[in-house]
Nucleic acid binder design. Sequence first.
DNA 1: ATCGGCTGTTGTATGCACGCCACAGGTGGT
DNA 2: ACCACCTGTGGCGTGCATACAACAGCCGAT
Lengths: 240, 240
Amino acid sequence: MESRRPSIPLERMSVEDMLACIEPFTAARNEEIEVLARSVVRSRKPSQTVIIRESQQPDGLYVVLRGRVNLVRAADGGRDLILTSLGPGDVFGESCAVEGVGASTTAVTAVATDIARIPADVLSAHLRRDSNTLVRLMKLMSEKLSEVESVASGLALCDVEERLRRTLVRLAKRQGRHSPADEGWILAPVPTQSELARMVGSCRETVSRTLSAMARNGLLSSSGRRMILGETLMGNSAAP
Amino acid sequence: MESRRPSIPLERMSVEDMLACIEPFTAARNEEIEVLARSVVRSRKPSQTVIIRESQQPDGLYVVLRGRVNLVRAADGGRDLILTSLGPGDVFGESCAVEGVGASTTAVTAVATDIARIPADVLSAHLRRDSNTLVRLMKLMSEKLSEVESVASGLALCDVEERLRRTLVRLAKRQGRHSPADEGWILAPVPTQSELARMVGSCRETVSRTLSAMARNGLLSSSGRRMILGETLMGNSAAP
DNA sequence: ATCGGCTGTTGTATGCACGCCACAGGTGGT
DNA sequence: ACCACCTGTGGCGTGCATACAACAGCCGAT
């Protein structure tokens, strides 16, 4: 959910500095940051680890320091949909602050990931004292809502190619970097094709076919774990 | 978003009483309710009136008093998706409280509708003074998020019949009433089939066919603007 | 009233996008 | 160098959208 790109990786910063530079804490008072920092628990999770389970109350607010975490809805039959893909600086588990409702999605690491946890009671106490954080948390939620609405409307109104386009653009804007030399955006490491398929609500085979077609048409070029998105793709950001 | 069912219709209550009994204001102090009430503007809108336009900042928080309002994402080509359908007691336009982000959906009346508006500046001032409302507003948003996530995952993972089932159940639980005599839930007035189609991301014809099939199998029975959903349908509320 | 048009609702055929199965390379990680 | 996990491709079945057609209620116009 973040566009900031700190010069030092988050996992090597002090806990205080880390908190101070991520939403929703950027406007919190210093003493509040210190109170929070004292309770933060950091840990490293292997790939495919479930951190929060759907419909259960999360035990705190989590911050992704390194790696990637997917927010997922699963159906019986093994199929599922990745609703959001979170990278360094993003937070999840906000619903621990809202009493009475469990988490709406399952959070599972896509790769080996470093995370930080702020215990639920510590966060709640902080929110009661500092409404700046509360407002910013609400802003985060409204951005997330808008994103999920885009996913939903895309599924209903667009074909696979269009959905894939938008997903790649979103990923590039958040995690990629612009490269004038290659006149495009570099996206690395690219998620696997089956992961992309679970993001756009399709199957691996179709994603493979569609990506090849887009590469043929000069919209992108991929090699190994790198992908370069042409400027043509990045143009349209308005999304139904 | 509400399950309360007041004995008196909202549009006939005093503004103060009306505010006091809807979320997110149920925990607001009395003097705050009065301050808000002084600025509330009520109005009646004909069917198909656009109240809030996507990507534009709403001019206030709206309350549905009577009728129905759809939150919609439109694509070029006339096709669109109804993400949420709001009835009496529901609110929309929360994003007027979050600076910097426009509305994520267009709000349009489905039928002739009475609404009340709380101007954006009055609401913001109130939120700064009373964090109870802020917290409840956040809870509303998280419920909405969860609902939209259900829509998205349904579109990706379920066929039309299953999506229609869930949509009907949602509508019945929110607006319908239980009738032991008919051993089922009475849903009246039912949205038109084309409206249902826009809710489940399908087309009018398919909805018609699917409803007939469900009626044949005894899952529901419909006559005119009334529909009775059998207990069988209402059972499963857990949703991927 | 009567007529015509308009809007909303339901039913039936055709075509296509895309999901599923199967198999063959290719690639990265340890 | 191995093995597990990716990726590319062909074929096939089908759910569902597109399109066409028919009918009922509603309203204003004459």
